[in-house]
Design a protein around this nucleic acid. Structure first.
Length: 552
RNA sequence: GGCGAGUUGGUGAAGUGGCUUAACACACUGCCCUUUCACGGCAGCAUUCACGGAUUCGAAUUCCGUACUCGUCACCA
């Protein structure tokens, strides 16, 4: 086709596109940012619920933009209307908000590089396609699905590469008359790239995470615009990231194999290419097969973002976890800089895992526990209340009615520099502090007790009877030691260990009995503090409850 | 099958030619601390970096081959 024919073709195909590319180039001018500022973007497609991996990549976008004083924007990539799920976009926005991953620009936020929703940008893409047709870098392709399928079959039989390229690209050299003819018959078409690539040559890119990667050049005439005039991912990526001036494309490494396509697109369009950073997926070792696989929403509850919200994992703790998998040296840094926050750490691409990052539940758990241990009782109370209001209304009500005592309970052993670590998520509070709320304790009391050890209840009664709750800690435990020896128990575990046959047990056994009767648990924070908050009346009620319980 | 990448302990991993008799964390075990449960401290936990070969005075680190794992090969992103 001659240049004039191509211009005519472009006009026939896109009669409604009046603007030229320049119009958009001016509309989306260079960003005014200081040297080194990164412009990153998170581009989710609303095709399902949000996955941990999505959160991870959005987290990276946020962190790199923030530390370079750049821009992190949100762009909705809804070019696949077939797979789009209802409420998908709202869900993305609310999940990001819930996890405090805050874009500085974009969909639902605003900014001057919009619209940030690809389905509303059809005209822009078409304008650039029209230009590509004029230049001879794109053409309409009328091949039917069946034709493409049979080409594929043929290629598989002949053991050659599959795809529409070279001699298989039947419509790439159609004459203008042939095109007009097909058009007049109402044949449907897509717009394909007329690839100038040579498979025998190679392209090389430097991926910020993976390093140098070399591939054969792309020679596939892949689809730019689908039948409905909406672009494919590849084309939308090139246009949008150019116009929106993305400097760093951070995305899942399922995209690395399409890098040659993207490189070529940027060349053909005359755009400067952004840097690429392909992040490895979060994997897990399958407990049954032992195989390493991507986290799956069906098999792994923690794959879905919802899980973290529902089970009550604080977003700050999740950020900490994401930070530790983002940069392998973060964990150690944070351990040595416990007073600092994630914002104070400088992340770098070359400290990111090249292979798969494995999900480590035990580590997440530990991070969460440390997070909670550093929070004051009041903070834990408020956050837990917020959580309970959403996911456990009954408990929320109980919490509100017992605010003062609850905060006192949550504050036990918080003052020293060795805080306890018994809570990993908001939903643990109800269980861990089951003794703290009387209504709850009366109802559930000893049902969760796993051991069926027998305790000397008479001894407990006698002790409580004599107990003076105004004592300070030191006097109190001197007292209990004395009480222990008076009743044939060793005053310290050491004495007991030396001569176990001389004693019925040691002071710890008495404490255990008290703990179980009073709290219904084998583990609890400092007993005296609990008893002080509870008061003698409640303690006596619980002794009666326990009598009833073992009477069964 | 083609193309691209990965393979270090129970787990997550550090490590880019000598400082590695392989960091750190989690888990586990033991001891210590402690009035109990925890918390914390100390110690133990890969003589070895998928396998084979090559380069080198010297390799987990470079090169080649093999095996396995992962990603991708759509008018899905």
């Amino acid at each position: 086709m001659s240049e004039n024919e191509r211009i005519e073709l472009a006009e026939i195909l896109f009669p409604n596109i009046k603007n030229n590319c320049d119009y958009y180039e001016k509309m989306y001018p260079e960003r005014d940012l200081k040297e080194g500022a990164m412009v990153t973007r998170y581009g989710p497609s609303p095709t399902g619920s949000v996955h941990l991996g999505n959160l991870y990549s959005a987290f990276c976008d946020m962190v790199y933009a923030r530390q370079s004083k750049g821009i992190f924007f949100l762009r909705i990539e809804d070019t696949d209307q077939k797979r789009e799920v209802e409420g998908g976009i709202d869900n993305i926005v609310s999940v990001l908000k819930g996890f405090n991953i805050a874009p500085t620009e974009g969909y639902s936020i605003g900014g001057s590089y919009g619209t940030y929703r690809q389905s509303e940008r059809a005209e822009i893409y078409q304008t650039y396609v029209k230009e590509l047709i004029r230049k001879g870098y794109a053409y309409p392709c009328f091949m039917k699905e069946e034709e493409i399928a049979s080409i594929r079959e043929e290629q598989e039989i002949n053991k050659v590469r599959t795809g529409i390229y070279g001699i298989y690209a039947a419509d790439r050299d159609l004459s203008l008359d042939e095109v007009k003819d097909k058009l007049s018959k109402g044949e449907e078409y897509v717009i394909r790239l007329k690839s100038p690539g040579d498979y025998n040559k190679s392209v090389e890119i430097i991926d910020l995470i993976k390093g140098k990667i070399k591939f054969p050049e792309n020679d596939e005439d892949f689809v730019l615009l689908k039948k409905n005039g909406i672009p494919t991912y590849h084309f939308a990526h090139a246009i949008d990231d150019h116009l929106m001036h993305t400097t760093h494309v951070i995305r899942g490494d399922e995209w690395v194999s399409s890098v040659p396509k993207h490189v070529q697109l940027f060349e053909v369009l005359g755009f400067e290419r952004p840097e690429y950073a392909h992040i490895a997926p979060i994997t897990i070792k399958d407990s049954e097969t032992g195989a390493i696989r991507k986290l799956s929403k069906r098999k792994d509850p923690w794959a879905g973002a919802k899980y973290y919200e529902e089970s009550g994992i604080p977003f700050d703790a999740l950020h900490l976890y994401l930070a530790t998998i983002t940069n392998t040296n973060f964990e150690e840094w944070y351990l040595n800089n416990s007073d600092k926050s994630i914002e104070d750490f400088t992340f770098s691409f070359d400290k990111m895992a090249v292979g798969g990052t494995s999900f480590d539940e035990a580590k997440l758990n530990n991070i969460c526990k440390t997070y909670f241990s550093r929070k004051s009782g009041e903070e834990v109370y408020n956050e837990t209340l917020d959580y309970a209001k959403k996911f456990d209304e009954e408990y929320a009500l109980l919490l509100s009615n017992n605010k003062e005592d609850m905060i006192r309970f949550l504050n036990i052993e918080k003052d020293g520099d060795r805080p306890r670590k018994d809570i990993a998520k908001y939903s643990d509070v109800r269980e861990e502090f089951s003794y703290a709320i009387d209504e709850l304790f009366v109802k559930e009391n000893y049902s969760k007790l796993e051991s069926d050890k027998k305790y000397d209840l008479d001894l407990v009664k006698e002790y409580i009877n004599e107990l003076d709750l105004s004592l300070n800690n030191e006097d109190w435990f001197n007292g209990i030691k004395e009480f222990a020896s008076l009743h044939g128990y060793a005053a310290s575990p050491k004495d007991y260990k030396k001569n176990p046959e001389q004693y019925k047990g040691h002071v710890g056994d008495i404490c255990e009995a008290l703990r179980v009767v009073i709290t219904g648990r084998c583990k609890s924070p400092d007993l005296l503090s609990i008893m002080k908050i509870l008061g003698k009346d409640k303690i006596n009620e619980r002794i009666k409850l326990y009598e009833g319980y073992i009477g069964k």
